[in-house]
Design a protein around this nucleic acid. Structure first.
Length: 287
DNA sequence: AGTCAGGCAACGC
DNA sequence: GCGTTGCCTGAC
């Protein structure tokens, strides 16, 4: 019945990695638990095409289908070592060290930029559970359908698909006022008004962010999330209420907005966004 | 049943 | 610049 998917192969990586913690860490919202040949794992689409399957056993071994090895490795940030990431952190920061020790297996993923940006556009003032619901509804109505182990999986809809659907149809996916933002973003990208490939290729964080900020519904927080999780910009440092809380309560910073942003980027350095990911999880669990 | 949530834009001063 | 307000909805 099942289409040929090839054998499972090991995904090599260096340093700490927890598949479960990474999927729960507020950067990816659509993966689902699934069993494949008696192995408990997760499946989800990565851009176009059928879903990938990934599992990790108690020894830390990570496996995926041979055909998916390269894209899975890149997607979960297993193409870089945890040590090289941490080498650029401020070494006197004991709070950050504690946050890493709390959850060392988290990686910053590298999602396809469009679906990352679009998902974060829909995330404003929403809890994780609802972001998941919106993503699933959009996918199932406007994305390409696939099957794995007798279950349905949907790729994230293309910009053209969402542009063509119209704002009202997006609103009917439970997006509320976010429908307008998502529709405008999809239209701008589908029409070539905004070139996401150029944004992704832009090495300057400030210039890349500037381009994303031209989109309606995209402010600093969402632009930084898209660049960190979807374009490999580890210097991007998204500040949400949790990070603001930790910078205020633990780092004793009394400033806000652009000043806080500038302080964080300077203090945490070229891998500031990666540091943010550890701090975020730490804050959510302990503050 | 009400409250609240991982933000943004438009407006007021 | 800085603070306030409206926006929609589901999950808790």
């Amino acid at each position: 019945m099942a289409p040929p998917l090839g054998n499972l192969v090991e995904v090599p990586f260096e340093g700490d990695f927890s598949l479960r913690d990474t999927l729960k860490s507020g950067q990816i919202f659509h993966w689902e638990t699934i069993e494949w040949e008696e192995l408990d794992g997760f499946a989800g689409c990565i851009g176009e095409g059928p879903p990938a399957f990934v599992c990790q056993d108690e020894t830390g071994l990570v496996q995926t289908f041979a055909d998916d090895l390269a894209r899975v490795r890149r997607y979960f940030g297993l193409d870089h070592s945890a040590a090289s990431v941490r080498a650029a952190f401020p070494d006197k920061d004991t709070i950050l060290r504690e946050a890493i020790a709390f959850c060392p297996g988290i990686r910053v993923a590298r999602q396809p930029l469009w679906e990352c940006l679009a998902t974060f556009i829909t995330s404003s003032l929403k809890q994780v559970s609802h972001i998941r619901t919106m993503s699933l509804t959009l996918r199932s109505r406007f994305g390409e359908r696939h099957e794995l182990a007798g279950r349905e999986f949907f790729a994230y809809p293309t910009p053209a698909a969402l542009a063509g659907a119209g704002e009202m149809a997006l609103r009917e996916c439970g997006l509320g006022y976010r429908a307008k933002s998502l529709h405008l973003a999809a239209s701008a990208i589908a029409s070539g008004g905004l070139d996401l490939a150029a944004v992704e290729a832009e090495p300057s964080l400030a210039k890349a962010r500037e381009q994303l900020l031209t989109l309606h519904g995209v402010g600093d927080k969402i632009a930084n999330c898209a660049l960190l999780f979807g374009a490999g910009h580890w210097d991007a440092f998204p500040i949400d209420v949790w990070i603001e809380r930790i910078l205020h309560d633990l780092y004793r910073k009394r400033v806000k907005g652009a000043k806080l942003q500038a302080w964080a980027e300077k203090h945490f350095g070229p891998h500031a966004g990666y540091a943010q990911q550890y701090l975020f999880h730490f804050a959510r669990k302990t503050l």
